[in-house]
Nucleic acid binder design. Structure first.
Lengths: 342, 342
DNA sequence: TTGTTTTACTAAAACGTTTTAGTATGTTTG
DNA sequence: CAAACATACTAAAACGTTTTAGTAAAACAA
């Protein structure tokens, strides 16, 4: 049966000293607390011998720190978030933190529910890909002095740490790249741009289109339509109506996949003429026919940045002391689909 | 600044009763402990009013239960595992459990490290996709009476709960399907079959080949080669040497992607003649050209089964009382790549 | 009336730590 | 030679629960 793990008490009893002393030694405060070298060594040796590991729960209760971080994304099974999570996980474990992942489906109610749940269960910090309507909840977290970093998108007018990519620039560059490759009628398919990341992507596209004196062709699909699986119909209709498009820029990975599905069904030949760029990369894009050009977010940089901000934040008494708003650059991975082909 | 959350003590003080009474009421033991209806109602109402949420850490310390489950897979950013995780997460939260995901990279050392870490941090249960050499560690967990369910693969001769698919059947059916479609020289590309799931897949293939009087053509890539990125070279060499193959069955998702990459580079036309089946589905397979036939694992069934086994296990005093070894059937999703095309 | 049972509640211990506020020595210092 | 300080350690409280082992009063039984 389950054997009881050794406690600090066992060590104290065995060595006939107090738990206080053992605790001091184990926490590296031997010097500061004037514990003699010999005793310190004895404690350390014995602790090692019996393979003592502190009970994290007891530690948490006493210190108020759980050593747990929450990493809340839209959908953990989405390739982009999964990859991010994987890297974040590695760094966190290294630093002695556990990570709880969860998916909010970009839904406010679910977001609020999860945040409340975890906040009451005393997690130490949050990384959050926020759904559109939780500005208030985030504000309250900050008021409660809980470390929060927003990821992928943020709220205008809210002073909160964030790590995002420069969506406007990435989108501008991608669009300009299509234009440089002789595409003239470039469509843009997006979900409703009511969040900062989508707003940035749209304005980057429009800026490039305008600067080059071209005409914009945009399709904005309401978010609920996408989740109801109606996205495909909208996109199909868009292409039916815009017969003269020679290129299309999909603002998310999911939209690209839906778009490719439609091309395959309706007009397989088209795919080899049309210029195509996808926001967010996918392992399969490099082996598709044609290979698909994509805007790739630097996953490693993002995760590393998140931790660089989070770790000092966890130590602070006042999380509003310094706010970091980090913007990293995405990379355009040029493949066949964005080049004029004969 | 951070306001202290309300505790059971606040309720007791406010209502001028003991914490014991409050605790009883809050735990639904009012009846059993003879707390009067009126007082019970008063407590409940007041708790609701001040939005009391118990401190989980204190509960954990007292009860020895953390309400945390560990879900350890090979790589959480792998589509198959990510999807599984997502479903498991949902069910777990529903039941009041949090889930910590982690990736062991199919490496024994990393597996052992993570299991030790979490075991000492008193998690309530494990779902583990085991790396090849941790039979012993798993055995020890069971001896310590910790709930464990193995996922995707298991160990021969170890009495441990497990949820796996019927790999042999799935693989046999897939191979037979190729044969039924007039393919005669069917190659099989796998990583080293030293784990039960790979063993099953290989033997299913061989069985179908033998029953039909065909010749097997197998490539077994050692695991370390794959992780070193040498997988591609092995596969390329295999196809160079086996010019007469008319079909190929890839035993994992990753191998399929590598294979497609090679076809694309070496002989793009081939891909439209060759019979191709992939073990494990991918969102992109249905929009590839040709669409790729795959063996798809029933993610929902698997996650549901895991929870069905886990929940009662968490209540038991003796986890070896009943062992569940569940085998679910995979589904062959037939697409263009496995049909003879002209 | 006395004893037993039931009802309605509570005091205090326990979980395993950390930390505050000590004590009892020995060593300097003026 | 007393006062101050440094050294080496410890008792006990605290974190917020759950649970055991009660108690006091009311109800019932003989």
């Amino acid at each position: 049966m389950k054997k009881k793990p050794v406690s600090i008490r066992n060590i104290a009893d065995e060595l006939k000293i107090s738990v206080t002393t053992v605790s001091f030694v184990l926490n590296g405060k031997a010097k500061e607390k004037h514990i003699s070298k010999e005793l310190t060594k004895k404690v350390l040796d014995y602790a090692k011998l019996i393979n003592y590991k502190p009970n994290q729960i007891a530690q948490s209760l006493r210190t108020g720190k759980s050593k747990i971080l929450v990493f809340m994304v839209e959908d953990i099974s989405n390739n982009f978030f999964a990859k991010l999570a994987r890297i974040f996980e590695d760094i966190a474990y290294d630093k002695g933190y556990k990570v709880i992942f969860c998916s909010n489906e970009n839904d406010d109610e679910k977001s609020n529910e999860l945040i409340t749940l975890f906040n009451f269960r005393q997690v130490d910090g949050f990384v959050i890909v926020p759904s559109p309507g939780i500005k208030n909840t985030i504000e309250n977290l900050i008021k409660d002095n809980i470390p929060v970093i927003l990821l992928d998108r943020f709220f205008d007018g809210l002073d909160c740490n964030s790590v995002v990519i420069d969506n406007e620039k990435a989108s501008f560059d991608a669009t300009q790249h299509l234009i440089n490759n002789q595409f003239k009628n470039i469509g843009y398919v997006t979900i409703a741009p009511d969040q900062t990341q989508m707003e940035g992507r749209l304005s980057g596209y429009l800026k490039a289109i305008n600067e080059n004196g071209l005409t914009p062709h945009t399709l904005e699909i309401p978010y609920d339509q996408v989740y109801k699986g109606k996205g495909k119909e909208h996109i199909r209709k868009f292409f039916d109506e815009k017969k003269d498009l020679d290129a299309v820029f999909f603002a998310t990975n999911y939209l690209t996949q839906t778009g490719l599905e439609i091309f395959k069904e309706n007009n397989p030949a088209l795919i080899n003429e049309l210029g195509i760029i996808s926001f967010d990369d996918n392992d399969m894009y490099k082996i598709y026919s044609p290979t698909i050009t994509s805007v790739s977010q630097p996953l490693n940089d993002i995760s590393t940045k998140l931790m660089e901000i989070m770790l000092p934040l966890l130590k602070k008494k006042d999380v509003t002391e310094t706010i970091h708003k980090v913007m990293v650059n995405a990379e355009l991975i040029v493949r066949e689909s964005s080049l004029k082909r004969e």
